[in-house]
Computed example of a mutant assay.
Amino acid sequence: MVIPVHDVNPVRSTPWVTYALIAANVVVFLYTPGIAGSVAGEGSLTQLCHLQAFLDQYAVVPRELIHHQMPRLVPTGDIAVGPQGPGCVVGPPGYDKSPELSVLTAMFLHGSWLHLLGNMLFLWIFGNNIEDRMGHLRFALFYAACGYAASYGFALLNATSGDPLIGASGAIAGVLGAYLVLYPKARVWVLVPFLIFLPLRLPAWIVLGFWFGLQAVYSSGEGVSDAGTVAYAAHIVGFLAGMLIAWPLRPGTPPPPEPRGLLFGRQARPRQTW
């Protein structure tokens, strides 16, 4: 696994939409019931009940999205003590949920700090160039379209699942797919864990191609123990959607600048001209 930290690909305009998306994701995470409770030190059962109730209302649930099979009983966020001990109270939902709108709200929900920071790191590094190429409004629409494609693709493959799907990963995977199409030769600084974190500067096609290959392997359940808790299939669909949408923009995309200085952790030799 490689960790990207910076790309050598300057932009011409300020990526306001990218900044706004990052800020919105962080704010929503901090105000998510249960997540905020864990930071404040509330009991774990209280945190779990609040979080379950919140996700049932705002997360994507595949069988709701595909079949519109809405649950009759959902967690209410309250706790009760029964014969088996304390647990979350369930009851009829006190809200009207739109499965289609939940795709949008789920893009701003994350289950942990690691989940949030990992997604925002990729959006920070690669989103600015895609926004710069597409423009602010088209980039916002592109981001939403990739998120919807990823959620619907995953739901179609898991149409009977009642597990909530959350995170910006599908939309950000679309950004990565677009970057691979538009800037395959751009250099990306990455950290490679090899005894220590080894800094390397690699072409984007290697970094993003390797990332996509890992998602394909993990989606099959190979090489990872938590394949059932991470929607790798959504990453794949989002990535492919981003590639398809960005493909028509290839002819008019200026190439990234020629890299100078450090290359693969070593000083590059100056080229001689004749």
Results as ranks from 00 to 15, higher is better:
Thr253Val: 10
Pro248Tyr: 05
His235Ala: 05
Ala168Trp: 06
Tyr179Asn: 09
Ile206Ala: 14
Tyr179Gly: 07
Leu214Asn: 11
Pro184Met: 07
Pro184Leu: 04
Phe239Cys: 11
Gly174Tyr: 13
Ile166Gln: 03
Val188Tyr: 09
Ala231Gln: 05
Tyr183Thr: 11
Phe239Gly: 05
Val175Tyr: 06
Pro203Val: 14
Gly209Met: 11
Leu240Gly: 01
Leu244His: 00
Val207Met: 08
Tyr232Arg: 12
Ser161Val: 08
Gly221Phe: 14
Phe194Leu: 08
Val192Pro: 03
Val175Asn: 09
Pro193Gly: 03
Tyr232Pro: 01
Val224Glu: 06
Asp226Met: 02
Asp163His: 06
Ala171Cys: 13
Trp189Thr: 11
Leu200Asn: 07
Leu200Ile: 02
Met243Val: 03
Gly177Asp: 12
Asp226Glu: 14
Ile166Met: 04
Glu222Leu: 14
Pro164Asp: 10
Val192His: 02
Gly170Ser: 07
Val188Trp: 09
Ile172Cys: 03
Ala173Val: 09
Ala216Tyr: 05
Tyr179Pro: 02
Gly177Ser: 13
Ala227Asp: 08
Gly174Asn: 11
Gly242Tyr: 00
Gly221Pro: 14
Ala233Thr: 06
Val192Met: 02
Phe197Pro: 01
Tyr218Lys: 14
Gly162Asp: 11
Gly170Pro: 07
Val224Ser: 03
Gln215Leu: 10
Ala171Met: 14
Leu214Thr: 08
Val224Asn: 05
Val190Glu: 01
Trp211Pro: 04
Ala204Leu: 04
Arg250Ser: 00
Pro203Asn: 13
Leu208Ser: 14
Asp163Ile: 02
Phe212Ile: 04
Pro251Ile: 00
Ala171Trp: 03
